[in-house]
Simulated scan of single mutants.
Amino acid sequence: MKVNRMEAFSDGVLAIIITIMVLEFKVPEGHDWHPLTDLIPKILSYAVSFAYVGIYWNNHHHLLHTVHTLSGKLMWLNLLLLFWLSLVPFSTAWMGESDFAATPTALYGIVLLCAAISYTLLQRAIMKQHASDSAIVLAMGADMKGKISPLFYILAIATAYLNAWVSCFFYVLVAVIWFVPDKRIERALKISSM
């Protein structure tokens, strides 16, 4: 199998994940703005989750451009990442429908933490295909965002039982940190192609 097939499959799964999330919305009864206020928690959780799925799609796309040889290990690690991301619609819906109750908010963080760990495992497996002093390995190894994000997820999970809004602050903070596309891989690919 070529890498572009795995990327196309992943793109399809991520598109379905976003579609499932938006299908969770039910049309409110009434014909004015007031019924929409009941949907605010769902809209907020959807917006954050949409950003997360978009961030993963963007970074996954760049990451797969660094793959030399597709192996069974890489395919399984990619599927592990997609597994955790496929749970985002469920945890998003539960968190939004519960008005950010403690357990659904904590579960949301657990899903995001496991997705982050899965992405890191995939990234490390891809890095092993390159020389330890290559521009790609040096660029991916300096991954401050990847190192700090799991810490914020752990803080978010822990604070969900103290104050759900503090927990959500950490989720939004990680999304903001990652919202700007990661240019390290693009720069490394340009250097290695010279």
Rank of each mutant, 00 (worst) to 15 (best):
M1L: 11
K2Q: 08
V3Q: 08
M6A: 12
M6N: 07
A8Y: 05
F9G: 04
V13S: 05
V13I: 14
L14F: 07
L14W: 03
I16C: 04
T19P: 03
M21K: 05
V22E: 09
L23T: 10
F25H: 10
F25S: 11
H31T: 13
D32Q: 09
H34Q: 14
H34I: 15
T37G: 08
T37P: 00
L39D: 06
I40S: 09
I40A: 15
K42Q: 15
I43K: 06
I43C: 07
Y46R: 10
A47G: 12
V48E: 01
Y52P: 01
Y52Q: 05
V53P: 07
I55M: 10
Y56K: 08
H61S: 11
L63D: 01
L63G: 00
L63T: 02
L64Y: 14
H65S: 11
T66M: 13
V67H: 06
V67A: 07
K73T: 15
W76C: 04
L80M: 11
L80A: 14
L82R: 07
V88K: 02
F90E: 04
A93M: 09
M95E: 13
G96W: 11
D99R: 13
F100E: 01
A101I: 04
A102Q: 03
A102N: 07
T103K: 07
P104K: 09
T105A: 05
Y108C: 04
G109T: 01
L112K: 07
C114N: 15
S118Q: 05
T120L: 09
L121M: 15
L122M: 13
R124L: 11
A125G: 13
I126Q: 00
Q129P: 00
A131H: 11
S132P: 03
S132A: 15
A135K: 07
A135C: 01
A135R: 06
I136H: 01
L138C: 07
D143R: 04
I148Y: 03
P150N: 09
F152Q: 01
F152T: 02
Y153M: 00
L155W: 02
L155P: 00
A156H: 01
Y161K: 04
L162I: 14
L162Y: 10
N163A: 12
W165Y: 13
W165K: 04
V166D: 04
V176C: 09
I177K: 02
I177S: 03
F179V: 05
F179W: 15
R184S: 10
R187C: 02
A188E: 06
L189A: 06
K190L: 10
K190C: 00
I191H: 05
M194I: 10
